[in-house]
């Protein structure tokens, strides 16, 4: 290679800025001049190396983004499963769904009401009467009370049979009524509670009235006297200060009402 072609000239050729004549002459010499050819190849190789440097940077950048993206996707979706498409539902569909749910709730509710008859409500709500602890010693001497405390319920009736029934005190009537419930005899308990209730009504007092309301309600439920039971439950629930206000729920009341209606 003589001084005919320098690097600038060869670069101009590679950059495509030579005239067609200059280009043609250069290509002709390139075929015959091995030194020129080697120098030219080296220059071309160098330019290609520069291009590859550009590619290398692009590849590096794309790879970083790709791997980062893949890592993030992995964090949230370990299995690359196709996502379910969000379907547009018509109002008709939602209407049907709401109707189905309502029907299900209604059937569930009816089932609950049907299941809750008087005896089952009684079983669910019954609590044994417990004598308050603040009584005086002399009161504890009462035979019926002692028997009640000791769970001797049958003996209570044997003792009471020997007594004049009109002479029974309100406490004794309450205990006898509860003793009958403990013996699972609602029909036997009913007269005691009714008498207590009547006495209070007639005398304008409220001796053990909260207890009477509650145990009467239970007695009526056990006997299937739903209207009477409903009236007592309604009274208890209507009075926030009633001792047994929380012992019946609104649903219990509805169940009893349902029994009255059907």
């Amino acid at each position: 290679m003589g001084n005919k072609y320098d690097d600038q000239y060869m670069l101009d050729y590679l950059d495509g800025i030579l005239s067609p004549e200059e280009k043609s002459l250069f290509e002709k010499d390139l075929k015959t001049d091995s030194a020129l050819k080697e120098r030219f190849s080296l220059l071309k190789f160098t330019i290609n190396g520069i291009k590859l440097k550009g590619y290398k940077d692009s590849i590096k950048q794309v790879q970083q983004e790709f791997l980062q993206n893949r890592l993030e996707n992995k964090k949230f979706t370990p299995i690359d499963a196709p996502k379910l498409e969000k379907k547009e539902r018509s109002l008709y569909f939602w209407g049907k769904a709401a109707a189905a749910v309502s029907l299900l709730v209604l059937f569930g509710f009816l089932f609950y009401l049907l299941r809750n008859d008087g005896p089952s409500l009684y079983e669910g709500r019954y609590i044994s009467y417990e004598i308050a602890a603040e009584r005086g010693f002399s009161e504890q001497e009462n035979i019926l009370e002692s028997l009640f405390i000791n769970g001797e319920f049958k003996q209570m009736f044997q003792v009471s049979a020997e007594r004049d029934q009109d002479q029974l005190s309100p406490r004794e009537m309450l205990l006898l009524g509860n003793a009958a419930l403990e013996l699972d005899s609602a029909s036997a308990s009913l007269p005691y509670f009714q008498r207590l209730d009547e006495n209070n009504t007639n005398s304008g007092t409220d001796t053990f009235q909260d207890e009477v309301d509650f145990f009467l309600a239970l007695t009526y439920l056990k006997l299937g006297e739903y209207q009477n039971a409903y009236n007592r439950v309604d009274k208890i629930r209507a009075d926030d200060r009633h001792k047994y206000n929380d012992n019946f729920s609104r649903l219990d009341q509805l169940s009893i009402k349902f029994r009255i209606l059907f």
């Binding site: 290609n48 291009k51 590859l52 590619y55 290398k56 590849i59 590096k60 790879q63």
Partner: peptide
Amino acid sequence: IQETMLVFLNMIET
């Protein structure tokens, strides 16, 4: 893979 891509692009380039 990074090197593979570079070789592949060079093949296209040349």
